[in-house]
């Protein structure tokens, strides 16, 4: 398992998101109110909307296209919608604020 540095926490606004390309995948990094950073594949399971552009409310993000709610921890759509997008492990170095994406 490897990890790569993709950002620092200062680069991601609270309740905001940034994107990073990894191979052919685009990954969205979200920062919650408490500073936690979570990462999802940047693709809504519904119509492929860019989740990074959505509104972050607590631990979910609303897809900007049709307002599906996606759980930032599990990648699953909240009811009544069904679907799931990829989840990535994230590690934050509390000292430097470096954000690492974990790769299997």
């Amino acid at each position: 398992m490897g990890k790569r540095k993709v950002a620092t926490t200062a680069e991601i606004d609270a309740l905001g998101a940034r994107t990073v390309k990894l191979g052919d995948k685009e990954i969205a990094l979200f920062r919650l109110t408490d500073g936690e950073v979570l990462a999802l594949e940047n693709r809504c399971p519904h119509k492929g909307g860019k989740l990074s552009e959505g509104m972050v409310c607590g631990g979910t993000v609303h897809c900007p296209l049709h307002d599906w709610r996606i759980d930032l921890r599990t990648g699953s759509a909240l009811e009544p919608d069904e679907g799931c997008t990829g989840v990535y492990g994230v590690e934050v170095d509390p000292a430097s604020g470096a954000v690492y994406l974990l790769e299997e």
């Binding site: 490897g2 950002a7 940034r18 994406l101 790769e103």
Partner: peptide, 15 residues
């Protein structure tokens, strides 16, 4: 302005 740009991933390090 930063929010309009994509982040750059570093080369992977072994963890």
């Amino acid at each position: 302005r930063k929010n309009f740009e994509t982040l750059n991933a570093a080369v992977p390090a072994q963890g």
